[in-house]
Amino acid sequence: MANKPISMHRLRQILLCLSRSFSERAISRELSISRITVSRYKSCFLSSGLDYESLLNL
């Protein structure tokens, strides 16, 4: 479904995988979400200027 919002729990899972250096493809497989979704959130996380660990601690 297009533009379906994802939960904060799912965002934290993406952040956790990114902090462990998982590839976008591996994250999408593990969490059953599209690579485009992972890529978009990764881009948003990087543009925040904070590292993944800092974002996880928010």
Rank of each mutant, 00 (worst) to 15 (best):
19 S>N: 13
26 A>G: 02
42 K>E: 13
21 S>G: 01
3 N>P: 01
23 S>G: 11
17 C>P: 04
36 I>L: 02
48 S>Y: 10
18 L>K: 07
28 S>A: 14
33 I>N: 01
15 L>Y: 09
57 N>R: 07
42 K>F: 04
49 G>N: 05
37 T>A: 08
22 F>M: 04
26 A>W: 03
32 S>W: 05
30 E>N: 09
15 L>Q: 03
14 I>V: 07
22 F>T: 00
34 S>D: 01
25 R>P: 00
34 S>A: 01
46 L>N: 05
14 I>G: 02
8 M>H: 13
7 S>T: 15
30 E>S: 10
20 R>L: 04
52 Y>T: 12
34 S>P: 04
49 G>F: 03
11 L>V: 02
14 I>P: 02
26 A>C: 09
11 L>G: 00
40 R>T: 12
18 L>H: 06
12 R>I: 06
5 P>W: 12
24 E>C: 02
39 S>N: 12
43 S>D: 13
25 R>I: 05
33 I>V: 10
55 L>I: 14
57 N>F: 14
35 R>H: 11
18 L>I: 08
41 Y>W: 12
37 T>M: 08
41 Y>T: 03
15 L>M: 09
15 L>H: 06
21 S>L: 10
21 S>Q: 12
37 T>I: 03
19 S>T: 07
7 S>E: 03
11 L>A: 01
6 I>Q: 10
23 S>T: 15
5 P>C: 05
46 L>C: 09
41 Y>P: 01
34 S>V: 02
53 E>K: 11
9 H>Q: 08
29 R>C: 11
40 R>Q: 06
51 D>G: 15
56 L>D: 14
56 L>G: 15
15 L>R: 03
31 L>R: 00
52 Y>G: 08
10 R>F: 09
20 R>G: 08
35 R>M: 03
40 R>C: 06
53 E>M: 00
20 R>H: 08
1 M>L: 04
51 D>S: 09
32 S>A: 05
58 L>C: 11
56 L>H: 03
21 S>R: 12
7 S>L: 05
54 S>N: 11
49 G>Y: 13
23 S>V: 11
49 G>P: 07
20 R>Q: 14
2 A>Q: 09
58 L>Q: 05
2 A>G: 10
53 E>N: 11
29 R>F: 13
50 L>C: 15
11 L>C: 08
38 V>M: 02
48 S>F: 11
17 C>M: 03
7 S>V: 06
11 L>K: 14
6 I>T: 09
20 R>S: 13
36 I>N: 01
6 I>C: 02
31 L>M: 07
38 V>Q: 01
45 F>I: 04
24 E>L: 00
43 S>H: 08
51 D>W: 12
50 L>S: 05
50 L>I: 09
43 S>G: 05
51 D>E: 07
9 H>A: 12
35 R>P: 04
42 K>I: 07
42 K>D: 07
51 D>Y: 15
4 K>D: 06
8 M>L: 12
43 S>E: 14
29 R>M: 07
24 E>R: 09
30 E>P: 00
21 S>N: 14
14 I>T: 04
2 A>H: 00
43 S>M: 02
26 A>P: 00
28 S>G: 14
31 L>E: 02
18 L>V: 11
15 L>E: 09
10 R>Y: 04
33 I>P: 02
39 S>K: 15
17 C>N: 06
35 R>T: 05
45 F>R: 08
15 L>N: 12
